[in-house]
Simulated assay, not measured.
Amino acid sequence: MATAFTNARIFDGDGWHEDRALVVDDGKVVGIVAKNDLSPGVTIVDSEQAIMIPGFIDLQVNGGGGVMLNDDRSVDGIRKICEAHAKFGTTGLLPTLITDTPDITAAAIDAGVKARQARIPGFLGLHLEGPHLSIARKGTHHPRLIRPMEDTDLQRLLAIGNDVGTRMITIAPENVTLQQVEALAQGGFIVSLGHSDATYETAKAYAEAGARLVTHLFNAMSPLENRSPGLVGAGLDLGELSCGIIADGFHVHPASMRTAIRSKRGPGHVFIVTDAMSTIGTNLDGLLLNDRQIYRKNGRLTLADGTLAGADIDMLSSVLFVHRELGIEFEESVRMASLYPAQAIGIGERKGMLLAGYDADFVVLDADLRMKSTWISGQQVYEA
């Protein structure tokens, strides 16, 4: 039976609807209609003057709820990560494996296959961030685990097929060939460039081979310079690339973020990722990654030497940072966390908006933009 959510301001991803109802049936959006046009027998949910927006999609989530995918490579671990981020409006995410051993990578992939079979709410697939990165731009990735992609690595990746859902991989041209990227892209992988000193020209060649994303723009990559645009310049200038960005105020200066958002050449967009660690939704004061201590203090996560080690921010906080601190209109901030990441991984025709036929994934906020509830496929998965 259909359900109608009434008494809310509804943002469908394009525009606002006032004094209308969001109608949901069988996990899908039926439409946004006038209350007088509701069918008899529809179940009415009074949203009490709330704000309804499309659910957030996070393509880089290392952990949450006290769990890191690197440490808990299980269906239950993935479920805990998804549940932790649902409390902050995330209705779809890619659990992300930070550079690790081949055995741990294989275990994470197996967990992803089982998580998809279990239909865990919010699970979209996996993001493998490494191990085929540049040691010079390693960031918090352990240098002894970084290595070139071998033919056996490529064949193992291609063998995954569609069993985990969306397959995203971050690679550096320093350790992956153009031919390997072409094979990955043709095999269904979303290839992202990151942790690299690649030149503009190299990044362009890899985009032509099938790369489509840039991982956490500005961080762990060659910068934009006057005669050397680098990976940052390529990400902004090449329309076929979309760029994730960490919006916590620590990873990227607000002025750089504003400049990137204004200058990004389409059809690709700058979209928000959290790069969140296990601390989200907990009171943990730190965590271990590859046997190294990461410290949590004042919104930052760092190694002992001060190197940023992932982020300590959730999606709603990221959206509000972009809106309030960068001065980006609220509607565009929401699109950066919903529609644009959905488009970046090829699911923009079913997620990221509240239009007829789309998945009924949405967030309910109060008038002050605080969390009230999260809904996935028309089912409530969190209530504040």
Rank of each mutant, 00 (worst) to 15 (best):
S242W: 05
S242H: 10
C243F: 15
G244L: 08
G244K: 02
A247S: 12
D248W: 14
D248K: 11
G249W: 07
H251A: 02
A255E: 12
A255C: 13
A255R: 13
A255M: 10
S256N: 13
S256F: 11
M257L: 15
R258G: 10
R258Y: 04
T259C: 12
T259M: 14
T259R: 02
A260H: 13
A260M: 10
I261D: 13
I261Y: 05
R262C: 14
R262P: 03
R262K: 15
R262W: 04
S263Q: 10
K264H: 15
K264P: 06
R265F: 10
G268V: 13
V270Q: 00
V270K: 05
F271C: 01
V273H: 01
V273E: 05
D275L: 05
D275N: 12
A276S: 14
S278W: 00
T279A: 13
T279Q: 02
T282P: 09
N283P: 03
N283D: 15
N283Y: 11
G286L: 13
G286W: 10
L288F: 14
L288Q: 12
L289S: 09
D291V: 06
R292C: 12
I294Q: 08
R296C: 10
K297T: 11
G299R: 14
L303N: 02
D305A: 00
D305P: 02
D305Y: 05
T307A: 01
L308S: 04
A309D: 01
G310T: 01
I313T: 02
I313H: 00
I313Q: 00
I313D: 00
D314V: 05
S317Q: 07
S317R: 07
S318D: 04
V319A: 05
L320D: 02
L320V: 06
L320M: 14
F321L: 08
V322G: 05
V322A: 09
V322N: 04
R324L: 09
E325S: 15
L326H: 13
L326I: 11
G327I: 11
G327N: 08
I328H: 12
I328D: 13
F330N: 12
F330L: 15
F330D: 12
S333R: 15
V334S: 01
R335P: 14
M336P: 04
A337M: 12
S338E: 15
S338D: 11
L339T: 03
Y340G: 06
Q343T: 14
Q343V: 08
I345W: 10
G346C: 13
